[in-house]
Design a protein around this nucleic acid. Sequence first.
RNA 1: GUGGUUGUAGCUCAGCUGGUUAGAGCGCCUGAUUGUGGUUCAGGAGGUCGUCGGUUCGAACCCGAUCUUCCACCCCA
Length: 451
Amino acid sequence: MATSKPSIPKGTRDFGPVQSAKRSYIIDTIRKSFIKYGFSQIETPAMEQLSVLTGKYGDEGDQLLFKILNSGDYLKKTSEQDYQAGSGALLPKIAEKGLRYDLTVPFARFVVQNQNDITFPFKRFQIQPVWRADRPQKGRYREFYQCDADIVGSDSLWNEAELTLMLHEVYANLQYDGFVLKINHRELLMEMARFIGLAGKEMPFCVTIDKLDKIGEEKVNEELIALGADETKLQDVVGLFHSTASASDKVDAFEKLIGKNRGTEEVQQYFEFLSAHSSTPLKVELDLSLARGLSYYTGIIFEVKATDVKIGSITGGGRYDNLTGVFGLKGISGVGISFGLDRIYDVLEEKGLFPDHLTKSVDLLIAHLDEDCFKHGLSLLQKLRSSGIQVEIYPDQAKLKKQFNYADKKAIPHVLVIGTEEIEKQQYGVKNMVSGEQASYTIEQLIQLLS
RNA sequence: GUGGUUGUAGCUCAGCUGGUUAGAGCGCCUGAUUGUGGUUCAGGAGGUCGUCGGUUCGAACCCGAUCUUCCACCCCA
């Protein structure tokens, strides 16, 4: 067989020992908070039936789905006419499965299938990779992890508030405070669109104002007027976007201009919950121009942005009514958030926020001078391990220089050297690799030292 | 999916309008130190210049295709 240079698919990555340790640190931190707040873990398959996935993410989303070619003779069910009819007609005959695009839709499927075993409200978390056939960029990959926490079967706005508190705890534990949590409400967006005369064109309105910080106010105004917006009313709405007032004042201003509705009431209630329950200051901001994930969110929407790293949003979420409706289970409302592990990684890396101890492997390396010393080392190894000390022995006969070098590269803080003299005296030279100091210990003293 | 961009040693990058034998720093290996890493010194290994094809007397350099990287659009974690 001809040799070829190995490679991995576009937008995917290998993770070495250091990267994996850092990723585990983030995952463990997030999971700790998920569990503390009462969420239970589930896992679902990497692949789903294509019928479960398609149509849930809009036309754009369907294009970004990875499809899995049927096994065996995948052309068996096709005919010449299917081929002539194009890829859209051919696809369902050659592919029945696809890789999951997010964790929310598989979760909805899970809830419907297991509805009799689930106690509602159901709080689940899920930390698994998802796949999108997007064109990769920095912070945008074709395989990436989502860390989702959702509460389904409860309409209470306390859930939104609790997710907000949990999110703050996660970032506090990661020692990152350069973020801001922006929230908005689907209903407020709809009302604003109707107010400026864009009834029936709510979606284009949202897509446009979402680009506010990207293309600027002037262009946004131009586009909205082109859509048919009333210019003077548009100015009033733009005034709301500009407001630096407190969330509650912003809602008041909104109600004065456009009127009360479900959105204003829910946002007001959400902020009341927060102020009643938080001792530390929260980084929550009502941003009336925030418009995201509108293909399924129906209430409050969330987005966490890194303010000091150019990477886009690092956490997103919102309230969706009738999540499970498409799978035949009505009346189940939910709210959830999704942490973007890979982007959080990039942020922590850029800000130098990973703790140093992540790369440390064991506390002690046993080095030895010859075969007999190695064998003696094995007995020490066992004693030390049974005392709970993290220790390894250099497996080959090698110069001490090489063994010390190994300890240095692996950032092992202590090296114990065994020679014939040490075996006789039952006293071992132990070098502290950080200070460079060396002293002699019995095995019991050493256990004391390292415990 | 549309338009652009990148690829040279393990890593970060030089390499003139196409010209002989493609370089540097760091890292790696060996020795100075036959019982001691991280510092210092001396030596050494390592490249079909992303891949395939074309133009040319001659290609890392020009052209085409393809893969990859990054960027903008779209969308999103």
